[in-house]
Design a protein around this nucleic acid. Sequence first.
DNA 1: ATGAAAGCGCTAACAT
DNA 2: ATGTTAGCGCTTTCAT
Lengths: 333, 333
Amino acid sequence: MKPRTTIRDVARKAGVSVGTVSRVVNGHPSVTEAKKRAVLQVIAELGFRPDAAAQSLRRGTNRTLGVVIPDLRNPFFAELMQHIELRAKERGYSVLFASSDEQADSEAELIANLARRKVEGVVLVPSNRAERIANPDGVRLVVVDRRIAGHPFVAADHRAGARMAAEYLVSLGHRRIACLSGPENSFVARERLAGFMDVMAPRLAEAGLDPASCIISAPFDYEGGREAAKALLADDGPRPTAVFACSDQQAIGVLRTAFDRRITVPDRLSVVGFDDILISDLVAPRLTTAAQPLAAIANCATDLLIGGEPLDAAASHIFPCAMVLRETCAPPL
Amino acid sequence: MKPRTTIRDVARKAGVSVGTVSRVVNGHPSVTEAKKRAVLQVIAELGFRPDAAAQSLRRGTNRTLGVVIPDLRNPFFAELMQHIELRAKERGYSVLFASSDEQADSEAELIANLARRKVEGVVLVPSNRAERIANPDGVRLVVVDRRIAGHPFVAADHRAGARMAAEYLVSLGHRRIACLSGPENSFVARERLAGFMDVMAPRLAEAGLDPASCIISAPFDYEGGREAAKALLADDGPRPTAVFACSDQQAIGVLRTAFDRRITVPDRLSVVGFDDILISDLVAPRLTTAAQPLAAIANCATDLLIGGEPLDAAASHIFPCAMVLRETCAPPL
DNA sequence: ATGAAAGCGCTAACAT
DNA sequence: ATGTTAGCGCTTTCAT
């Protein structure tokens, strides 16, 4: 790594002062056209790039955003990350990424490290266990997907989305509908379950059924769905004719178990997922799901941080979901 | 954002000089136990964290790695990214992420930006079109997944992996085997195709068949596989009894098309993928594939960068693939 | 073992 | 419009 070209080198070669070079670089208006051209010329010749550390030290900020996400192996998070980085790049920002691995207690540490690095803000997708966030450095923070008291959050309307999914299943004629919920300590899981219950509770009560009997909790991933489905689709007792899974990954896991058990979807079992990750359109049969507007969420969170507006809870944004009807649902036999 | 606590604040409160505080922070040995304790105490009280920009300016480096990847929506890349970040974090490094969106010409720009930010090195997964890399800043660079002249690269042995896959299909008794290759300008695609041909060329020659007749190129993603399979599985002429797809995503796309065409897998069509992404174990039927040792690749690339060893082409590492036998292959009828 | 002080490269305030 | 300069927070040499 050769010694970097500095602003002094440029100044010397262009026969101007460092101040002028700085002004040119930062587009300050009061520089004559002639000098500006000369400086730009030298900058190009020398391949000068301002040292980000020096700028950061001087300005106290450095056009960088932090993103803390539980796990990129979850395609929903990976897609979110991709959208965030894209938007940030469009606006001239770079992205520092850190995964929390679903360890709630590591999140504070990660955020503190980002603060140390002078990020202008951080997008946090909290792990399930996170109830609140230690943010001693007062970093600008936007919470995505899950609500955390006292912070602005940007998310889909999980509850309304789940309601739509349940209503859709009911409209198809299903009555025995199971809900494959997420981890019990998860805000998202609770919201989606609540949406499901908004629709189902009255019906269950009418039929004199215990709501608990049609709910099962499992991790949001493929494996969680696959395992939970084994219980749901057991041969004892009346099997549900439809299941609403709280994530597409879970739903795909359900599809997997149904396939293993030779339960054809959608003929003998309808399945609805939640998220609309890319793979959902490729599995066989294609997954019907409540789609989150991922790009809108990512862009909103990013813009909030970059915009510099005050980030109180009033800055929160909730986006509606939309049902994407594909091939995993049909009226019960 | 309150004004940061600086090293001076700590020094004043602890009644020592800034030099001593710095020595304590950096674990320099020549500090008496008593002062060390006092300083540590004050650091804890004040919640002091050294300013990364100042350290970076002074040291010329800042415990940060850059990662440039085409697209996180590709689960293979997302998993790779997750592994890299994990390893980097273990070693006390942070990760700046940038996606190139498969634009070869944007890679140089992204790397230059990372250089400006004083990363200690960058892991680059080049886009298909990249033939060589402009690296005017002399950044430490490790190329992952594909070979680029003049740079150390870390990757699976694509060719040998493809050979294994083809051999496996042959050993099952298949003769009409199609290769669903990647984009023609892709190094990885060419390597895997070459591995396939190592096995198939002699057989094809013997049968007097044109090798081109059993090869089709498509993007590495789900959609590419799905579309290519439509041609491969057309009803005119003898259909292949097996398909070797150059990525799991493609393979899953093939499964999708086969399902649509009512061609049962593996009975009437065997499918082998390449990569072993997480979803491959969940699709129905489960995908048989040539698995890349993802964690090993990610760790190796990360360690190479952090280790500070010279990064010539001799630093390259090739890891063997392993066949993962699941449910998409059977002898031909 | 410790303190004092010189910068790292840049921006912005001040002077001209 | 442009040059000069202080100083952002830190590490590290040089004295002591």
